[in-house]
């Protein structure tokens, strides 16, 4: 991961730093959170909270890890905290906003088939239990290495590998069931 950003911005004020972080990583963080909470509106709120948290925590940031890793940890913990909250557990959302709309422009059959397969894959990934979903997301969507994933999630590298393997097994099973049924 790039720690380039940090080195060039050491002279900036905290507020400018947050601005820079939002510009560079805002979209990524938002997507990361959507992946956890499955709802865009909530994810937007959480992302704002994450950057505010970040701003408050900036003075305590020790440059042992790259800024991105640090930001990712804050984001992941915040999203998980939200999912542990009373509100998330007790208040049932009427709509699950993800995968709601499918673009209607494809006419060629092959595209449709491909799309359906992709949709099935995305759906299956999103339905995985969190601990498998997050490693698969970080690996295949964000294209992070095993070591980076272990670092961000603060777990052992071997644990990442185990979860990845298990996650893929679950995915395969899920997709095969769908195909047969």
């Amino acid at each position: 991961m790039d720690s380039y950003l940090l080195q060039t911005t050491t002279t900036q004020t905290n507020e400018e730093m947050i601005d820079e972080l939002m510009k560079t990583y805002g979209q990524d963080v938002l997507q990361l959170v959507v992946q956890y909470v499955h709802n865009v509106t909530i994810a937007e709120d959480l992302t704002q909270e994450i950057f505010i948290k970040c701003y408050k925590a900036l003075p305590t940031f020790q440059q042992q890890s790259s800024m991105k890793t640090w930001l990712w940890r804050i984001a992941i913990n915040h999203a998980k905290d939200y999912m542990k909250s009373w509100y998330f557990k007790k208040v049932e959302l009427v709509e699950q906003t993800y995968l709601q709309e499918r673009p209607s422009y494809q006419t060629v059959e092959s595209i449709v088939v491909q799309r359906d397969e992709d949709d099935a894959l995305v759906h299956a990934v999103m339905q995985l239990p969190i601990k498998y979903r997050e490693v698969i997301y970080l690996c295949y969507y964000e294209e992070q290495t095993m070591k980076e994933i272990a670092d961000v999630l603060q777990i052992n590298e071997n644990t990442v590998k185990t979860r990845m393997r298990k996650g893929k097994q679950l995915l395969k099973k899920q997709l095969e069931e769908e195909f047969n049924g």
Partner: peptide
């Protein structure tokens, strides 16, 4: 199949997900 995940997610789940300047302003 998982190599397709990024493209597939961008086109489905994340198609409506955008971190805009409005969000930034609200943070400020």
């Amino acid at each position: 199949r998982l190599k397709n995940l990024k493209k597939a997610m961008n086109e489905s789940v994340f198609s409506k997900v955008e971190f805009t300047s409005t969000h930034q302003k609200r943070v400020h």
